[in-house]
């Protein structure tokens, strides 16, 4: 028992030393920021989850998309164009296919960390196709999201993102619900 305790304390100390050593690196990469202000292109992939009333109709699936971002004169703000393919099935006959196409503004939190935190919000159109009704149309959509990424060199960025997509239908005659989808994913994008 005593031997176990000693080993436990040693391993805790080891972890602390490692964290202290690596934290120096965490604050020492300011110069990399400038690469991040370049135009960016990337792709994401991950679970797409219908929530609220939409979650009663279809189930979580996997989806993915691509995006492009362009910088503005203000370094912390970018404008972006985003699209993805999202196909939801259910255990019954219901199926929903979504292709959101939207523009968004991306705001980088001004923190001196290699990890970058970005908030974004946008609007656009979303193409929907529902089965078994076999109907399709474009809907108005809004989105808000959050991203966390870190650079892997001068060009490559790796990150995680989570977006909420709101499909606006309640203004239509006979509508009872709007659509709600949460996209989460890992992403890879490049400073070009």
């Amino acid at each position: 028992m005593k031997a176990f305790k000693t080993r436990f304390i040693i391993s805790i100390l080891f972890v602390c030393v490692f964290l202290l050593a690596s934290s120096r690196e965490l604050f020492a990469v300011r110069d990399r920021t400038e690469y991040f202000t370049r135009p960016q292109i990337g792709a994401w992939f991950g679970p797409i989850t219908p929530v609220g009333p939409t979650g009663d109709l279809v189930q979580t699936a996997l989806g993915g998309g691509i995006f492009f971002r362009y910088n503005t004169p203000y370094d912390l703000l970018k404008i972006g164009l985003d699209t993805s393919y999202q196909h939801f099935t259910s255990s019954g006959v219901n199926e929903l296919t979504m292709v959101p196409v939207y523009g968004n503004m991306i705001f980088l939190l001004p923190l001196d960390l290699p990890l970058r935190f970005q908030f974004k919000a946008g609007a656009g159109g979303c193409w929907l196709y529902v089965k078994p009704d076999k109907l399709s149309q474009w809907d108005i959509m809004f989105m808000a999201g959050f991203e966390l990424s870190f650079p892997a060199g001068r060009i490559v960025n790796i990150g995680l993102r989570i977006d909420y997509i709101f499909l606006y239908e309640s203004y239509m005659q006979g509508a009872r619900n709007n659509g709600h989808v949460i996209n989460a994913g890992i992403m890879l994008y490049f400073n070009i």
């Binding site: 009333p53 404008i79 474009w138 809907d139 108005i140 239908e169 619900n177 709007n178």
Partner: peptide, 24 residues
């Protein structure tokens, strides 16, 4: 860029059938 976005948006003409309600 703004013009490009506007052009994309103008391509989209929204439908008037509440598809999600239809699905339900």
């Amino acid at each position: 860029w703004l013009l490009l976005f506007a052009a994309c948006a103008s391509l989209v003409s929204c439908g008037d059938t509440p598809l999600l309600t239809e699905l339900e």
